[in-house]
Amino acid sequence: MEFLQANLDYLVLGTLGLMSFIMLALVIERYLYLNRVKVQQFDHIETLKIDLTRNLTTISSIGSNAPYVGLLGTVLGILVTFYTMGQGGKIEVHTIMLGLALALKATAAGLLVAIPAILFYNGLLRKVEVLTACWQAWKDGKGA
């Protein structure tokens, strides 16, 4: 329990920081790729879709799972707070409130990672839809 008490913030916030770093790196890579891709170089719609949607699943997964990582940190923080109170034998309101407030920062951090990830994912998905429509329009015009 002492290990968890001493390292909980580092574990949860470190995990969320890593998730955020990975998400931002993939978002930048996707935006750069989608801005320079030439849809005319693809002969088949499915190969285009595979290329355009690469790494979007990871971005979406980070966005959907970051709140759970934060919630896990909050639950463990509350557990540590109650354990520490039980060990001390005294119940002091300010100790409880401080422990709970510190535990809730993990949930807030999880949301701070998740919200931009989902916004970026939706923006990238829209760009994929537009590029796919451009390919279809180009293919229809080429065949006519």
Rank of each mutant, 00 (worst) to 15 (best):
S61D: 11
G70E: 03
W138R: 08
I91E: 07
L100R: 08
L8F: 06
D9I: 00
I62Q: 01
K139Y: 06
V12Q: 05
D43C: 10
G110M: 08
E92M: 04
R30A: 08
V12I: 15
Q87G: 09
Q136P: 00
K139C: 02
L76Q: 07
T84P: 01
G123N: 10
V80Y: 06
K38D: 15
K49F: 02
G77M: 13
V27M: 03
A66K: 10
E92F: 05
L13V: 02
V75S: 14
L56R: 03
T15E: 06
A101E: 04
L48Y: 01
L131H: 00
V128D: 02
L13W: 04
F42S: 01
N7W: 03
G99Q: 12
P116W: 06
G123S: 13
Q41M: 10
T95V: 08
L18A: 12
Q136A: 03
L102Y: 10
G99Y: 10
E129S: 05
N7R: 07
L76K: 07
L13N: 01
L104G: 14
R126F: 13
V39I: 09
G123V: 05
E2C: 06
L13Q: 00
L79C: 09
P116K: 05
L112I: 15
H44A: 07
A66R: 06
L32F: 10
V37A: 14
I28G: 12
G99W: 08
V113S: 00
E29S: 15
I91V: 15
Y33N: 10
L13I: 02
Y83W: 14
S64V: 10
D43F: 13
K127F: 03
L11C: 02
I59C: 00
D43S: 15
L119A: 08
V113K: 00
L71N: 07
I115M: 03
L98V: 15
P67D: 05
A106C: 15
T81N: 04
L48P: 00
Y31P: 01
G77W: 04
Y68R: 09
I45R: 11
L100K: 08
K139A: 01
T15R: 02
Y68K: 09
N65W: 03
